[in-house]
Nucleic acid binder design. Sequence first.
DNA 1: TTAAAAATCACCCGAAAAGGTAATTGACGA
DNA 2: TCGTCAATTACCTTTTCGGGTGATTTTTAA
Lengths: 212, 212
Amino acid sequence: MATSLLIFEDNNQLRQSLQLLLNDGLFFNVKAAFDNCLRAAEEVQLCQPDLVIMDIDMPGRSGVEGLKAIKATRPHTKIIMFTVFDDDEQIFECICAGADGYLLKHTPPARLIAALQEAMEGGSPMSPQVASKIFQYFRKEAKPAPDYNLSEREKEILQLLIKGYGYKMIAAECFISLDTVKKHLKNIYTKLHVSCGTEAVAKALKEKIVAV
Amino acid sequence: MATSLLIFEDNNQLRQSLQLLLNDGLFFNVKAAFDNCLRAAEEVQLCQPDLVIMDIDMPGRSGVEGLKAIKATRPHTKIIMFTVFDDDEQIFECICAGADGYLLKHTPPARLIAALQEAMEGGSPMSPQVASKIFQYFRKEAKPAPDYNLSEREKEILQLLIKGYGYKMIAAECFISLDTVKKHLKNIYTKLHVSCGTEAVAKALKEKIVAV
DNA sequence: TTAAAAATCACCCGAAAAGGTAATTGACGA
DNA sequence: TCGTCAATTACCTTTTCGGGTGATTTTTAA
């Protein structure tokens, strides 16, 4: 059974090339192709394709919106973004909105076909540049947690402060006196270079000083 | 110029197969192959390979540690993880530690070769299953920010609270009276269902209610 | 046009937080 | 063994916070 396709691509030549390439009468079957995605969800509802190829930069309505509209009405439809854009924002927005793949337009035909098949098998094909951006994203996230030399006890108390506990509750939780809690927090504030509890909590969470 | 390789793989048969496959005398040149990565960094220092193929499950020292050791001493060495493991933890740890690709062992030879070339060109090759896991990860992260119906002014004031400002400083910053600040914060606490500033800050940051 | 919501300010009060000083105990390393 | 550091407690002071009540003005929505 051939995979049925819908194509949304405003460039006439490219759209026709895609149709020609993918209407092979064997593996793929292009049901229709459009130069805009204004009625993307309706077309998908009508044609019931297995897979959609979606350009991003189209007049009237962005392919990202088309993606969201389709995923909202027929979530299991596979959608491959096909675009010249490789900026991080766009990529992450599409992935979060449920895109099943992200290919750049310079992808050679053979790789495109392989990618579509990969998507149909549950994979998430993407261009090498896109993959690298994603790897970079993870490395940025994993910044080494700065060490402010907090003792175990201090971390424990900071933890409770983040949970919204007041001084008295912390004292009860740790079986220590209120004055000890105060002393610990004073030391914590000094070590973190902050002047109050809210600032300490903000810093601890932003810099992942403690486990969340 | 052929790409020079080092291989770390404890399965004898697989290691030899890889050597046979990749020692093509044209594109690749296997400088050495080891059944452990106990001295991975030293071997790399010695052989100066362009690319390393690193198994994860090896006796003595995990390939993840090998990866870290190599990246610590010679960061531009490309490293492709090659493993049967596809659990999220392992994948993300490797990516964050600087892996340049993540392939599962059932990868067919042609795809393996393509992946190595892709890595050399700055891409980040990965198996379809791995790509899907990464896509899933992003969708999990992108939980819709809950709306607590905070007004613009309230968000602004919450923002300042997160910056560690006290009530008086917030009043000065917003050109409003201290009492108004109190009133706003009281409303904020009510809307967020919290009872104090630290708790509000923690909730706002954890649930991404405000921009950081 | 009228009603609801948001923003503003004021006054009062008790509890909590923040900071200072000082002292004791126990563990750990030089 | 001695000194350092973490953890502990106590006492004292001032400021800040959090909450209650009430009121005015502006903006927005119905």
